[in-house]
Design a protein around this nucleic acid. Structure first.
Lengths: 121, 121
DNA sequence: ATGAGTGTATTAATACGTTTAATACACTTG
DNA sequence: CAAGTGTATTAAACGTATTAATACACTCAT
């Protein structure tokens, strides 16, 4: 389901959070679909179950999944994470833009990149 | 000269690198001006000299300062760091924009923020 | 030349967070 | 009831950041 990058210096649980939240955000994992169990994903990634549990706790905290004890973890509806995700993303964007301006990047260069990412139309 | 944020979870040397590089990029510290010595800054921040040394080594690596043994550390000319800084900043911006788009932010919202930061004119 | 101030390098010890490990418990399903 | 689920706890191993204590080479003012 996901692959870990051992060269990455970040904690494993953080990588798991990142990968799974991306899959949820981009719609690959449908709402209410069942996620791998803590133990099975731990075995799949050759990692300790505690590490997965921590990642799942974080994902639940951020609204990306909901938990039913004894049944498993399930993908949450976008309404649960959309708001929080949007503020985080907007803050990141503001920060990146400020640094770009401070470094002397022209507004035209920014526009060019925006067009490049959003598409020409 | 700079103030540390003890609540920040990042390593101290990383904070020092960030703060000083910002001061250099935005022009507060003029090229060829002398930076605090390793020992004096360490005392100023109530931190170990090794920590400052590590920060200065990183800053030299990134082209923000140059070192003259026995004399001290001095602010480098913008030509030394402009190029590398620009690519880093551009990559960060691209990443932030991709995530904004993926989360569903409209191009108009992005334009609004750009205007907000670059100014109306 | 000498001494104070500079950057640099090395080694050891300490502190902290991550991860592993081994359990135990409560819940749900077949 | 048994197997699978999430959850919680405790201890140990491990890596990195940080502190600490030195030592060395260089520059500058005296």
């Amino acid at each position: 389901m996901i692959v870990l990058d051992l060269r990455d210096k970040r904690p494993i649980y953080e990588q798991v959070v990142e990968k799974l939240s991306q899959l949820i955000v981009c719609g690959v994992l449908e709402p209410d679909s069942k996620l791998p169990s803590v133990r099975s994903l731990a075995i799949d990634l050759s990692v300790n179950p505690n590490t997965i549990q921590r990642a799942y706790a974080q994902l639940e905290q951020d609204g990306y999944l909901y938990t039913i004890t004894g049944r498993g973890n399930f993908v949450a509806d976008s309404s649960s994470w959309k708001k929080g995700r949007m503020t985080v993303v907007e803050n990141d964007l503001r920060q990146a833009l400020k640094e770009a301006r401070q470094t002397g990047m022209s507004r035209e260069s920014v526009d060019r990149i925006v067009v490049e990412i959003w598409g020409e139309e």
